[in-house]
Amino acid sequence: MTEYVLLIIGAVLVNNFVLTRFLGICPFLGVSKKLPTALGMCGAVIFVMTSASAVTWALQHLVLEKIGLGYLQTIAFILVIASFVQLVDIAMKKFAPPLHAALGIFLPLITTNCAVLGVSVLNVQLQYGFLKAVVFGFAASLGFSLALIIFTGLREKIDRANPPKAFQGIAIALVTAGLLSLAFMGFAGLV
């Protein structure tokens, strides 16, 4: 049990995917303008990352390694992830059209969200078992969500700020993300 708790704390706080591993920056910057949209994105990422962890683990251990095709990892994983994202996209368009419209291009872009691929690859690299891989995937997506929600709050503040012209928009958002990442360094060594 402790092991899993530490795994979750590690993935959420200490090695936060966005703020210390710098994965998944694209949606992090893209959908952090309004809280409801950000929450929708969090839901989508949690679903995709957790299930992708499970499926890619199975693919890696039950298929690729069995037939000695471990080197196909990346391309096979992307295939699976891409399909998953398409599935979410189609489902969301059907069941939550406003959210679908709000997320716009960023929903299909989860495909190329390196956090998803990252967690799948890390699962293999760290040689996690199935359950651990799924928990890690879930925790990583929680970490992504935490960072995204905090950052969305900040974005709403800095949207009203008054930066010099050269730093308006995404530039000042990146500076903020950097400072947030600095703050997250405090969790180093926690686990």
């Binding site: 800095i158 700020a161 008054n162 930066p163 010099p164 500076v175 400072l179």
Partner: peptide, 13 residues
């Protein structure tokens, strides 16, 4: 970085 880039007093997060 932490203050003036955001617009100075009042704007820094």
């Amino acid at each position: 970085i932490c203050k003036q880039l955001f617009g100075g007093i009042g704007y820094n997060p």
